[in-house]
Design a protein around this nucleic acid. Structure first.
Lengths: 331, 331
DNA sequence: CTGAAAGCGCTTACAG
DNA sequence: CTGAAAGCGCTTACAG
């Protein structure tokens, strides 16, 4: 069986407390140290984490709640969090909720049971139940991708990203524009991103129509088909890259050439947008980087150090092949 | 602070052992039960998992080691594992190794420290270090996606999938074929998939050339460019969907029409293959389903019930738009 | 049905 | 520098 600290102590001819002190970097004489070291190596001793955590009444674990695992943004963010946490000797625990809000709340309480030191929450929407869970558990919580006045948060600069995209589209000469967005329940993507876009087109002669779809590519295909039946925009600005892929698909199905007849843009910067043809003009967010920052902030929170209530990540416009320049916009 | 079982016992006017018995479904009189129930509810008592695990000397945790998080196959598999484990009241712990084999080994030992009950390993390659870790830790290990004589495994039927693809390509009239595969260090994808394909074309008049690239789309773009410079196949059969996407990209860049001039196929069945244009003919593997089966098998293993040493998952050929029918193959 | 006691494997004051 | 003892929050025989 696995050795315990008592076994090691006996084998090394010292007391348990001495072994413990050695393990935790306390002062131990050279001779003792060497003896203990040797025994530990020989028997492959590793401390039992439960006993440690039970004593410490806390852990080095940060829980991360994600709505889904199969999304570019989520994977990248998780990898960033994991990397940074690992460097700081923290461990990441993932709880996938499959977009079920009830499970999101449960996940917080479950994490509390497991005495995680902090929780990073990638949620699309913050409800009262979330806030109550945060209070009940008294565990530091950091929101990623969304913001809320009562919680610490790290967000992508959706509003300005929307503005940047709007300006770009305008500068390329587009005047008949469809914006294909998502539900306003999602503050970051559904509200902010759209608001920035709308703002950038104020006082311009553009005709802009707003539509809504889900985050799924297949729904976007249908939504695009409907748009193109009732309207002839020169461009469809999509709230996410996945939606943009759906729109491109719809255009192919209708034999509409991209970008010459219809331009398309996305938001996200997923890898695949560079591989498809034409390549997709989009806004790149720094998901992995955001994960690292989130982990870093979380650690500060755990150590009760100060962090800003809200931190904004940057973004980048990627001008690629899916947007046509319209040289003579009819002003 | 959080209540302990001692607090609850005191508040309910009973002994700790009685509360514990109640919690674990032992026999408790009705009156006592009600009293305890009420106190627990009132104080939101939840047992400390560490203390429980420390006593039990084991956990309900299954560790899953993955080489990366940002892959369709991995995400789907993880979601399947998570779903099934959750149903059985087990918890999933994920360790991402970023394709670093050293970290893969470390992950196994780390999981051992945390006393996980079993480990599901999504590895591309099984080394002696893996086997040693399995022995050292004495924790049941289940391989997913790869097989090894010494370990339990769950695999996709790569060999037959390769054969199916080979036959399909042949039946569509292709005779000049390039196969763009991956390193043979990966037994499932690099060896089996290719072997099945090769087998299916034995004793046919096909001219087949074999090439190798990495799993990255960008590398595939370059590999395809090289192939097309030295050879004029009517089809490039790619070992994964990502590679196929890279090949399609290369074709676009060279102004080669797909499928009329060059056909392309993949393996995997990623969502995006249905959205791109043309849609990709590929083999669909059942990743999520495999995750569920893996979790189910793992639980049986933990309970010391019998499972087959090796289980094969099925697959499905998706005939789509990226393969052209060549009506008069020059026999 | 119920309770006192021992013990899971650690760490942490406290003496020496 | 070192060790004996208490305690973290549970569960599990063992008596009663």
């Amino acid at each position: 069986m696995n050795k315990t600290i008592a076994d090691i102590a006996e084998l090394a001819g010292v007391a348990k407390s001495t072994v413990s002190r050695f393990l935790n970097g306390g002062s131990v004489s050279k001779a003792t140290r060497q003896k203990i070291e040797q025994v530990i190596k020989e028997y492959h001793y590793v401390p039992n984490t439960f006993a440690q955590s039970l004593k410490a009444r806390k852990t080095n674990i940060i829980g991360t709640v994600v709505p889904r695992l199969d999304s570019f943004a989520t994977s990248q963010t998780l990898m960033g969090i994991d990397d940074e946490l690992r460097n700081a000797n923290f461990q990441m625990l993932i709880s996938n909720t499959s977009q079920d809000m009830k499970r999101e709340i449960e996940a917080i309480y479950d994490f509390a049971r497991q005495k995680v030191s902090g929780i990073i929450l990638l949620a699309a929407k913050i409800s009262d139940a979330h806030l109550k869970a945060a209070e009940d558990t008294k565990i530091p919580i950091l929101l990623v991708g969304q913001q809320h006045p009562n919680l610490y948060s790290l967000i992508h600069d959706d509003y300005n990203a929307g503005m940047t995209m709007g300006r770009h589209v305008y500068e390329q000469g587009h005047r008949q524009i469809a914006y294909l967005g998502v539900t306003e329940e999602d503050i970051a993507v559904g509200v902010q991103r759209k608001a920035g876009f709308k703002k950038s087109l104020e006082n311009t002669p553009c005709q802009v129509r707003y539509y809504e779809t889900s985050f799924k590519m297949t729904d976007a295909v249908n939504a695009a088909a409907r748009i193109l039946d009732e309207f002839t925009p020169s461009i469809i600005v999509c709230a996410t890259d996945n939606i943009a892929l759906g729109v491109m698909k719809a255009a192919y199905l209708k034999n509409i050439a991209i970008p010459s007849t219809l331009s398309v843009t996305g938001f996200g910067g997923y890898d695949v947008t560079e591989i498809i043809h034409p390549t997709l003009t989009t806004i790149r967010f720094f998901y992995k980087e955001a994960g690292k920052v989130a982990a870093h902030h979380m650690i500060r929170l755990v150590r009760e150090e100060h962090i800003d209530k809200i931190t904004k990540m940057s973004y980048e416009l990627l001008e690629r092949g899916s947007v046509d320049k319209r040289p003579n916009p009819s002003l």
